[in-house]
C-alpha cells in the first residue's frame, strides 16, 4: 500500500500564548517560538506506518514549507517514513487553502508519476496554527479521490491489501461509520492514535532516505493557481482578541473560600440542587 502523508511545520502550540502582534507594524511576532511537526500530522504518519506494517508498500511525506521545513521532514523520516518531498518556493508563499491544496496535488501527481501511484493519502485533520481543516477535502476534491475528514478510527479489515476502508468520523452526536473506496484522502483527528517515539537509529537512518525538493522549476503547475494569485481569499488586518476580565481574588481557608463562592455562584443565576443528586443534568 503506497501512502502519501501531508505534513506541515507549525509554531509549537504550547507557546501560542507568547505570540504577539507588533503594535507598530501590525505584523505577527512569533520570535522564539520553535517549529514542530503539526501534532495531528504525526498521528497521520503513525496511522500510515501501521498500515504499511500490515500491508507493505511505502510511506512518502509531503510538506509545503520554506527551506527550513527540511528539518521537520527529516523528523518524519526518523519516525519511519520512507521518503520525503519538500515543496518549497517563494512563489508558493501566501497561498490560501485552495492554492495550497492545488500545489500539494501537483506534488503528489509528480511523485506518483515517478514512483507509483498512491492508494491512500493521509493528513492531520487540521493544522494547529491556521486550523482550517480544509486541506484533506480540497486535496481530495482536486486530485479526484474520495475524501473524508475528522476520522478517529480506520479499519482495514482483511489480511490482503484492501480496496475499501471502514472509517469512523467524529460528529456532533457520536460517530459516523463510512466505507470509503481507495484511492482516498483521509483527514485524521488527534484522537486516532498516539504517535510513536523516534529512535536514535531512526534519526541516523533518516539522513540516508530519499529526499526530493520540488520548486516552481521542476514542478509542473499553472502559475495562476499557486501562491497569492491562486488564492481566492485575501488576508486583511490581524488583531488579538481581548479576553481580559477583572480577576478579583478570593483568599482565605478552603472553607472560607467555599462560603464566599456559594454566594457568588448564586449571584450568577446558577441553580443549586439541594442534596446534590441532580440526575437530570
Amino acid at each position: 500500500m503506497n501512502i502519501g502523508v501531508l505534513v506541515k511545520p507549525v509554531p509549537d502550540p504550547e507557546q501560542y500564548n507568547t505570540i504577539t502582534i507588533d503594535p507598530q507594524t501590525k505584523r505577527l511576532n512569533r520570535e522564539g517560538v520553535p517549529s514542530i511537526v503539526n501534532p495531528a500530522d504525526k498521528c497521520a504518519i503513525e496511522e500510515a506506518l501501521r498500515l504499511k506494517e500490515k500491508f507493505g508498500g511505502k510511506v512518502v511525506v509531503f510538506g509545503m514549507a520554506p527551506p527550513d521545513g527540511r528539518e521537520k521532514l527529516l523528523e518524519c523520516l526518523a519516525m519511519g517514513a520512507d521518503e520525503a518531498v519538500l515543496v518549497s518556493d517563494r512563489a508558493f508563499g501566501g497561498a490560501d487553502t485552495l492554492a495550497t491544496s492545488y500545489t500539494l496535488v501537483k506534488a503528489l501527481e509528480k511523485k506518483a508519476a515517478e514512483g507509483g501511484s498512491f492508494d491512500l493519502i493521509l493528513a492531520g485533520n487540521e493544522s494547529a496554527d491556521g486550523a482550517t481543516g480544509h486541506v484533506p477535502a480540497q486535496v481530495g476534491e482536486q486530485i479526484g479521490y474520495n475524501h473524508l475528514s475528522g476520522i478517529v478510527k480506520i479499519e482495514s479489515g482483511s489480511e490482503s491489501e484492501p480496496s475499501t476502508l471502514t472509517v469512523f468520523q467524529k460528529y456532533e452526536n457520536g460517530k459516523n461509520e463510512f466505507t470509503i473506496k481507495l484511492p482516498a484522502v483521509i483527514g485524521v483527528s488527534r484522537d486516532i492514535n498516539k504517535p510513536r517515539y523516534t529512535s536514535a537509529m531512526g534519526v541516523i537512518k533518516a539522513k540516508k532516505k530519499p529526499f526530493d525538493i520540488y520548486d516552481t522549476i521542476n514542478l509542473e503547475h499553472d502559475k495562476e493557481r499557486i501562491g497569492l494569485a491562486g488564492s481566492p481569499t485575501k488576508a486583511g488586518a490581524i488583531f488579538s482578541p481581548d479576553t481580559r476580565r477583572k480577576s478579583e481574588e478570593l483568599s482565605g481557608s478552603p472553607e472560607e473560600i467555599a462560603e464566599e463562592l456559594v454566594k457568588r455562584i448564586k449571584a450568577t443565576g446558577a441553580v443549586i440542587v439541594s442534596g446534590g443528586g441532580c440526575h437530570e443534568r
Binding site: 496554527d129 486583511g236 490581524i238 488579538s240
Partner: peptide, 10 residues
Amino acid sequence: AFGGKVIGEI
C-alpha cells in the same frame, strides 16, 4: 489562528 490568540480578517 494560533488557537485563537490572533484573529485575522479574511
